[in-house]
């Protein structure tokens, strides 16, 4: 085993009273496609910002590409491509001007600029939009532009913060296709996401919750630990529906989620008709009843309950 390219030891970061990252031990090997999965507020952004040298460490230590983050944060920067969670390109600049801007800041050899920009534009599917202002791009294209800009200096390490959040499903798939290609090319990628299904595309997955890494394993092993599927119901009598659901077989958990109930079951296909029948029998009505993707919040709550038991 080679030495890790990203390494943190008991890394913590406080914001006033909040401990956003709590004694994190992360070890990522070169060439890994590492998915940092966790619900909102888990500390993913804070972790990535620390690794990009953008936030001070409160306790513990971290190093990226062999440089200590507290001692030499600037030495890390040429080696990484960091993509923030928010869109952070210059809206008034065109796609091409944004690329040139970052090419200049990363000292991309001038002789290679033209070739690299046109290759990245093609790679990101933006060739047709070269002259368009960045703030006139769709959400998915903006994410691809941001990725292209982080790739302009061919970094060894990519730190991508929720690159597919708020992106349509087609763009999401395209985006992951690009990441797989980069992974195949040998780039180390650390990508955060709140979607469990994206974890399956990674070579390694870290589950983050409340600032802690609660699990770190290849995706298949993680998935095996999170059982169950989700059904979403919008009942009229909310309390009665909840009481009824809890008595049904195959139901692990009922959680309230805004106006609706999220029901964690063993197999959604099998349980859906049974729930409908039970509602009819008890004269309970509802507005919607459908299988829903297992959100990380629910998956985590169930996982943490399992861990606690």
């Amino acid at each position: 085993m080679t030495s890790p390219i990203i390494l943190t030891q008991a890394l913590s970061r406080d914001f006033k009273e909040t401990r956003a990252v709590d004694a994190l031990d992360l070890s990522i090997q070169p060439g890994e496609l590492f998915g940092l999965v966790g619900p909102d507020g888990a500390g993913k952004t804070t972790t990535l910002r620390i690794l990009a040298g953008l936030l001070d460490i409160t306790e513990g230590s971290g190093s990226v590409a062999g440089h200590d983050l507290s001692e030499q944060p600037e030495a890390v920067k040429p080696k990484i491509g960091y993509m923030a969670q928010r869109f952070s390109m210059y809206g008034e600049l065109s796609v091409h001007e944004n690329l040139l801007f970052f090419a200049d800041l990363f000292d991309v050899p001038r002789a290679e600029m033209a070739e690299r920009t046109s290759r990245l534009l093609a790679f990101a599917g933006l060739t047709a939009f070269t002259g368009r202002r960045a703030d006139h791009l769709s959400g998915g294209m903006q994410k691809k532009l941001a990725l292209a800009c982080t790739l302009i200096h061919q970094p060894e390490i990519l730190l991508l913060d929720e690159p597919t959040t708020g992106v349509d499903p087609v763009s999401r798939r395209e985006f992951w296709h690009i990441l797989s290609e980069l992974h195949a090319g040998g780039t180390t990628i650390l990508v955060s996401t709140p979607y469990m299904d994206e974890a399956d595309r990674c070579s390694m997955v870290g589950l983050m919750y409340a600032g802690r890494l609660i699990e770190c394993a290849p995706p298949a092993r993680i998935r095996a630990k999170i059982e169950g599927e989700m059904i979403e119901i919008l009942p009229h009598d909310w309390q009665a529906a909840q009481d009824l659901l809890r008595t049904l077989p195959g139901v692990f958990e009922v959680q309230t989620y805004g106006e609706s109930l999220h029901v964690l079951v063993d197999k959604a296909k099998k349980r859906l008709p049974k729930i409908k029948k039970a509602f009819r029998k008890n004269k309970l009505t509802y507005n919607g009843l459908r299988p829903a993707p297992l959100r990380m919040e629910e998956a985590f709550i169930s996982l943490i309950r399992d861990l606690e038991e």
């Binding site: 990009a52 953008l54 920067k77 040429p78 990484i80 928010r86 952070s88 800041l105 800009c149």
Partner: peptide, 13 residues
């Protein structure tokens, strides 16, 4: 405010 500073700080400037 627009988050571009974050991106700028992640470069070697």
């Amino acid at each position: 405010e627009h988050g571009t500073m974050e991106q700028l700080m992640a470069t070697p400037i």
